Simulated scan of single mutants.
Amino acid sequence: MVAIVLMGNGDAHLKNWSLRYARSGSITLGPAYDFVSTIVYQPFRADTLALNLDRSKEFTSVTPATFRRFGERIGYPQPESLATLAAEFVEKMRETWSALSPDLPLSAEMSNLINGRLRDLPLARTV
């Protein structure tokens, strides 16, 4: 979800998430797919999430505390650790983007939109 917010993926619907059921009975989140920054494409620049996160679809309302509250609601044993993980992932995403973006076939406008998100979104400013 952190990546979805930072990249501006307004098309991450439930159909984009899957679970893997192992023979042992364990259940894990399936591999990510259909991750795309929808904000860089006209006319799809609606800057909102496809699904509610913490009762909002606004990318601007997501912070590490959003993930802590989610952990509390689902009874996660250490909900604060989800806020910490979210903040750590922001930094990893920023590092990865910096390393990869120069070689991506993106226009300057597209790169600037994503750079702006990594600088200005409340989730990104918490690091």
Rank of each mutant, 00 (worst) to 15 (best):
M7Q: 14
M7K: 12
M7T: 13
G8K: 02
N9D: 10
G10P: 02
D11S: 05
H13D: 05
H13S: 08
H13I: 06
K15V: 01
K15T: 09
N16W: 10
N16L: 07
S18E: 09
S18N: 12
S18V: 08
L19H: 02
R20Q: 12
S24A: 05
S26D: 15
S26H: 14
I27C: 09
I27K: 12
T28D: 12
L29T: 14
G30T: 03
G30P: 07
G30L: 04
P31W: 03
D34I: 01
F35V: 15
F35G: 12
F35Y: 13
V36F: 07
V36M: 12
T38K: 14
T38L: 13
I39N: 02
I39W: 01
Y41L: 15
Q42Y: 08
Q42S: 11
F44Q: 08
R45C: 04
A46E: 15
D47I: 09
T48R: 14
L49W: 03
L49D: 08
A50I: 06
A50M: 02
A50H: 07
L51K: 00
L51E: 04
N52L: 13
N52M: 10
S56R: 02
K57V: 09
K57I: 11
E58C: 00
E58N: 12
E58Q: 14
F59C: 09
F59E: 04
T60H: 12
S61N: 10
S61A: 14
V62A: 03
V62W: 08
T63M: 07
T63N: 00
T63D: 02
P64S: 04
A65M: 11
A65R: 13
T66S: 01
F67I: 05
F67G: 09
R68M: 11
R68S: 02
R69Q: 11
F70P: 01
F70I: 09
G71T: 03
G71R: 03
G71L: 04
E72C: 01
R73F: 06
I74N: 04
G75A: 00
Y76L: 07
Y76V: 06
Q78P: 00
Q78V: 13
P79S: 07
E80T: 07
E80S: 12
S81E: 14
L82P: 10
L82H: 11
A83H: 04
L85M: 13
L85K: 14
A86P: 06
A86Y: 08
A87Y: 09
F89E: 15
F89R: 15
V90T: 07
E91N: 14
K92L: 14
R94F: 06
R94H: 11
T96V: 13
T96E: 15
W97T: 07
S98T: 13
S98R: 14
S98K: 14
L100G: 07
S101N: 08
S101K: 12
P102D: 08
P102F: 05
P105W: 02
P105Y: 03
P105Q: 11
P105D: 13
L106Y: 10
L106F: 05
L106I: 11
L106G: 07
S107Q: 05
A108Q: 15
A108R: 15
E109S: 13
M110W: 11
N115I: 01
N115T: 05
N115C: 01
G116Y: 06
R117F: 00
L118N: 07
L118H: 02
L118F: 08
L118V: 01
L118I: 06
R119L: 14
P122V: 03
L123Q: 01
L123A: 08
A124F: 05
A124M: 06
A124P: 09
A124W: 09
